[in-house]
Deep mutational scan, measured.
Amino acid sequence: MFYPNSPQTSPQLTQIPYGQQYAMMQRQIQQPYHPFATTEPQARLYPYHYQGPIQQEQGGFITQQSTAASPQYVQMRVTPVDQSIMSGYPNQTANGSSSSSFNYNIHPQQQQQQQQQQQQLRHHAMPVGSVPLQDDRYRKQLIVNYLAPDVTSTDLHELFSRFGELDGARIIYDKQTNMSKGYGFVYFCHAEDAKEAVERMSGYEFHGKWLKVGYSTNPLNIVPSNSSPYVHAGSRGAAG
């Protein structure tokens, strides 16, 4: 039997160049792979992502010199942007860049009308829970959420009447099932009393439920100042 490094198959040491006398086997001759043993700084910083320098080929596509990437890492192929796409944008300079302001050559009167329309939209648009300043009635009506099913309009009136005089209180019921929808409205005579009720009743436990109280901004629920107070009856038909 002959071994790869046996004296019968191995040459004389004098015939082997210096430095390879003890590297006779194939696994010894093959050098191990060192990912950080390279002179390129990109490979030292990113050993798993770097795959060699990027070269520009004919046709405008950018390719990489090395083989496919590892399945664990996804390499994105980048193509140059066609400058003709950006030619339609206004205020574009000769080098292809555009300024931040756009001039669509709008007539001054049209621009003024658009600004007025935007101001009107901001004036009428009102986020949930906010209180408008032009109508004091919005500051007097509250919406009470997360009410228990057994709470009546009379219970709601008695709960909030300790903060001040009320114009009314009612629970909203479903017309088909005649069941409470879980929320109601309270109408105060003074805005200061309503503000105190919002601050003190939010998070209050009532009939096993934690109440959420806020201003009601729905104009359909506003009680006119010259109208008669609501009837605080315990029956659902009268309260709904």
Rank of each mutant, 00 (worst) to 15 (best):
N226F: 03
M126E: 04
N91I: 13
H107P: 05
G184Y: 10
Q92N: 14
Y50R: 05
N105T: 12
G59T: 08
K181Q: 00
A194N: 13
K181V: 04
D150T: 02
S6C: 10
P80D: 14
R27E: 10
D193W: 07
L220Q: 03
Q12D: 10
Q26K: 08
P229H: 03
G168N: 01
F2A: 07
P108V: 04
Q56N: 03
L147V: 10
H190A: 05
Q83A: 04
Q110N: 06
A37E: 01
G182T: 13
F206T: 01
V128Q: 14
G96S: 03
Q51N: 07
Q113P: 05
Q58G: 04
M126S: 07
Q15K: 08
N221K: 02
T63R: 05
G129F: 10
L220M: 03
V213C: 04
W210N: 08
N226M: 00
T9M: 15
R137C: 01
Q42H: 08
L45A: 09
Q20M: 13
T217D: 02
G203E: 01
K212L: 01
Y73L: 04
V131S: 04
G59E: 14
Y204Q: 11
I106N: 13
R170K: 00
K195H: 05
Y187N: 11
L121D: 00
G88L: 09
A68M: 05
Y48N: 03
V186T: 01
I85H: 01
D193G: 04
P17F: 15
S99F: 15
I106V: 10
P7F: 03
Q115P: 11
T63E: 06
K181C: 05
G96N: 13
Q112I: 04
N221A: 10
D167S: 01
S100Q: 12
F160D: 10
N103A: 09
Q15T: 04
H190S: 11
M24Q: 07
L220H: 09
A239M: 09
V223C: 10
N5H: 02
D174H: 03
K181G: 08
H107N: 12
Q28N: 14
V198C: 02
I54W: 04
Y50W: 12
A194L: 12
S202D: 00
Q15S: 04
P41F: 15
C189M: 07
S130T: 07
M86C: 11
G214W: 08
K140Y: 00
G164I: 07
V81I: 08
Y215P: 00
T177I: 04
R137S: 13
S161Q: 11
N145R: 06
Q42A: 14
P17I: 14
S97V: 06
Y18P: 08
G234V: 07
D167V: 04
Q42S: 08
N178Y: 12
I29S: 03
S153W: 05
Y33T: 02
Y73M: 00
G19D: 14
A191E: 15
Y183V: 03
E158F: 08
I106Q: 13
P53I: 14
D193P: 09
N105M: 00
N91V: 12
V151F: 02
T9R: 05
Q51V: 13
Q64G: 09
R162G: 08
F188Y: 15
V131E: 15
N91E: 11
D193H: 02
G129K: 12
N218K: 00
M86W: 10
D136Q: 01
V186Y: 06
P90M: 01
M76N: 03
M126C: 12
H157A: 11
D174N: 13
S216P: 00
A43K: 01
Q119H: 05
H34T: 08
Q31H: 10
E199H: 05
H207R: 09
N5M: 12
P35N: 09
Q8T: 06
D193A: 10
Q56E: 04
M76I: 14
I171W: 12
Y146E: 12
F61N: 12
M86Q: 12
A37K: 00
P47Q: 09
P4G: 02
D193M: 09
D150L: 07
A194M: 09
N226L: 07
A238L: 07
S161G: 05
E165N: 13
E192I: 05
Y89C: 08
S153R: 07
S100L: 04
H107C: 07
T177M: 14
V198I: 06
H107A: 11
H207E: 00
Q115C: 11
R236E: 06
M126Y: 15
T217H: 06
P32I: 13
R162N: 15
Y173Q: 04
Q12N: 01
H207A: 04
D135E: 08
Q31D: 13
T14C: 02
A43E: 03
V151S: 04
Y204C: 08
G240S: 05
S161W: 08
N226P: 12
Y183Q: 12
F188V: 14
Q56K: 13
Q111I: 03
L45D: 00
P7T: 08
I29L: 04
A68R: 02
Q176A: 10
G214R: 12
N103C: 13
W210I: 14
E196A: 02
R139L: 06
S235T: 04
F185I: 08
I143Y: 01
A197I: 12
T14V: 06
H34R: 13
R137A: 13
G129E: 07
Q26Y: 15
P47V: 15
P127K: 00
Y215K: 06
K140D: 00
R44Q: 03
F160H: 00
P80K: 00
T154H: 01
T177H: 15
G19S: 05
Q120G: 12
E196Q: 06
H157W: 01
Q83F: 12
Q113I: 13
P32W: 15
S66R: 05
R44S: 07
V151K: 05
T93V: 02
G240V: 10
D82V: 10
G237Y: 14
A69K: 11
K175G: 02
H123Y: 01
P219F: 06
F2S: 08
V151Q: 04
S97Y: 04
V131K: 09
Y183R: 01
K140R: 11
P149A: 15
R44V: 15
Q15R: 04
V198L: 07
Q118S: 05
D82G: 06
S130I: 07
Y89D: 15
Y146P: 09
E205N: 13
Y48M: 01
Q26G: 00
Q58T: 14
V231Y: 13
Q31K: 04
Y46V: 06
D135Q: 14
T63F: 12
Y48H: 05
S153K: 14
A68K: 00
T38W: 15
I85E: 06
S66H: 13
M76S: 04
Y50P: 09
Y48G: 04
R200L: 13
E192K: 08
Q72H: 11
H190K: 09
R122H: 15
V128E: 01
G168A: 00
L45G: 10
I222K: 06
A148K: 14
L45W: 05
Y204H: 06
V131R: 03
D135R: 03
N105P: 03
P149V: 14
Q116M: 10
I16D: 10
H190C: 08
Q118P: 11
N103W: 03
S130P: 12
Y173N: 09
Y187T: 06
T152D: 09
Q134I: 02
I172H: 02
N221W: 13
H123S: 01
P90V: 11
V81M: 00
H190L: 07
E165D: 14
G208H: 10
L220Y: 00
I62M: 15
Q42R: 04
E199Y: 02
P229G: 13
Y89K: 14
Q26M: 14
D167C: 06
G88H: 13
A194T: 06
Q113H: 01
M126K: 01
T63G: 08
L45Q: 09
Y33K: 11
Q31F: 15
Q119M: 03
G234Q: 06
Y204N: 01
R77F: 11
G234W: 12
Q92H: 09
P224S: 10
Q12W: 08
S228V: 10
